[in-house]
Design a protein around this nucleic acid. Sequence first.
DNA 1: CATGAATGAGACTTCATTCAT
DNA 2: TATGAATGAAGTCTCATTCAT
Lengths: 199, 199, 199, 199
Amino acid sequence: MGSTPQPRKSDTRERIQRTALGLFVSRGYEKTSLREIAEELGVTKAALYYHFKTKEDILGALSDQLGRPVDELIAWGREQPATLATKRELLRRYSAALREAAPIYHILQENQATLRELAIGETLRKRVTAVSGLLHDGEAPLDTRVRLSSALLAVHFGALTMDALPGDREDKREAVLRVALEILDSTAHEAPAPAVTAG
Amino acid sequence: MGSTPQPRKSDTRERIQRTALGLFVSRGYEKTSLREIAEELGVTKAALYYHFKTKEDILGALSDQLGRPVDELIAWGREQPATLATKRELLRRYSAALREAAPIYHILQENQATLRELAIGETLRKRVTAVSGLLHDGEAPLDTRVRLSSALLAVHFGALTMDALPGDREDKREAVLRVALEILDSTAHEAPAPAVTAG
Amino acid sequence: MGSTPQPRKSDTRERIQRTALGLFVSRGYEKTSLREIAEELGVTKAALYYHFKTKEDILGALSDQLGRPVDELIAWGREQPATLATKRELLRRYSAALREAAPIYHILQENQATLRELAIGETLRKRVTAVSGLLHDGEAPLDTRVRLSSALLAVHFGALTMDALPGDREDKREAVLRVALEILDSTAHEAPAPAVTAG
Amino acid sequence: MGSTPQPRKSDTRERIQRTALGLFVSRGYEKTSLREIAEELGVTKAALYYHFKTKEDILGALSDQLGRPVDELIAWGREQPATLATKRELLRRYSAALREAAPIYHILQENQATLRELAIGETLRKRVTAVSGLLHDGEAPLDTRVRLSSALLAVHFGALTMDALPGDREDKREAVLRVALEILDSTAHEAPAPAVTAG
DNA sequence: CATGAATGAGACTTCATTCAT
DNA sequence: TATGAATGAAGTCTCATTCAT
């Protein structure tokens, strides 16, 4: 600890991930060929195979890295009581987690057709389902379920699609969160929670 | 009379579209090869090319066909005054239009990375933007804009993603619409419109 | 003879030939597809097959039509004595014949690779060889043979490639012919023939 | 030592070029499929694509290699004064250059229809035009221009078409060159240059 | 006299992946 | 830690041709 940084161990793996992420986001997973990644990095395709077993593996590594905040959120959620307050906090935390995890969800979203047949796709979708499951505890009337889903949906897709809208990223995030919490509150027939403070 | 229809005026074009739609939805546009479509139909690849100029053309035909309700909605919307009532009606009609148009949006959503480079992708995205534009008239504070977007988003993605939720399709659609209208109402500082009756 | 023209028998065959000739010259034989010909004519591909057995057949018809002057020349040449005067007349007549036959030779030239494998190619090349044979009677020293070939070559390729040069078509033709005759004259060790009058 | 060379630094690229040249000349560019080239070489089509970006690229490499002598000639010609002596030398050198470059011009000639639509075709044609331009300096009466063109034409097509004629290749080349120089001399109204020594 | 529908063959090209060095 | 060379599978598309109507 506190040791001098070791620039010994090649950072190539890191660089591959960064480059791949950029291309996966901008051109799509399927449309991004290993040749492209290699060329942009100035290495050969074979070099990629030294660091990653397959193309899917690169995506897997990215998923692990970027998805960590969401995984932590899921772990946290599983230990909470299923109260309205928990759900409110869940939305808040999910919204926050998406700040970092957005790119990987973006990739999941825009390449779903491709990922459907990949093992990593399953992994990615499981995370989505898990978050959704935290919100949907037990039985509930259809209207309630739809509301819960809609609230999550707002946060989720809000993070992915509000880019077109003008305005500060963070401001928009908070506004979306506010809407989602309202939907959530309109669901539960308890006394609504106090003032909303996003983030 | 009443005999089985003879494929004289060939319904092959129709059948190609149906088969392609099914495969585009289930396997994705890119992952669906013309060989697959042809094989499932029992014709040769060349036959597809007799009826459609390119693979993209097949998607184009589907887009024209399934997207019509949304196109009509857009045309309608452009002639309405930009009142709250119009916006409510817009959401209602959009929700209804999606009953038919959902598959094509599903394809757009799940293959965005691929469609980004296709002419037809542009066409499809324009429709989305147009609907959004009808809701977003003139300047408005960020919070308002986010709410309008969220309402639309709820209807849109609700139609595409609520399948996982148990319950009658139509019931869920109405429930989602209700949520969307609430978001809309919470935006405008006028007296909210009277009772919600979806559909 | 002198009868009233009969516009009864469809002129489609004629039109196909005209269109095909134009395309064969401008786009090449191989690169011109039957679809193109049909489209430019406003008929279906199948219609072409009503009038011609194969694509090659269309070229065959054109060859017969446009090559007639050269065929007549060959017939004429075979009955002449192998004198210098005959050879001079041969060049003159060949030059004249090319006025009409140029397009078909153009096609032969620019698509030789393709025509090599077609029966019609053989036919076309035979004509070239035949003309050449009329000039090359019996044994002769290499220098003589080369001169004879060069003279013919000048007339032949002159007709096909002088388009780039500015000036009246016919003027250029006569000038080329003059050059060819000079080459011819420089070959024979007899008294050169009198004044050159081209055409 | 002295052992058979190991294809370590792979001479495959070279072999592809050689094989392709042979096939392009004998079967034509268009009619030669990559499958053929690959099969004749005992490699897969994909291997060709490892060494060349496209089919056209293979032709491009051949053009660069074989066309070099002509390119050098053009460079040389541009620095010479436009005298008759220069033009004579030009024809001599062009004739010599064609010894190596003939195959690529052969391909250009026999596949013109195809190459018309290829970038490489433009490149090839430019070389022809450039040589022609060196001969055609400034304005001149039509007769002069035709003679200059004819002289070049003789050398050019002589190199490509005299194969049918019996006799030694080199002998024929010199004989053709003599004819061309005579045409050239008959153009200029100066004292003709002294004895012709080709090569 | 002509069409609509379809076929079989084959073209060029791209991709993820492997392996000896 | 990487590269150069190569592969096998698959993809989209075009073409000349056929045939029942």
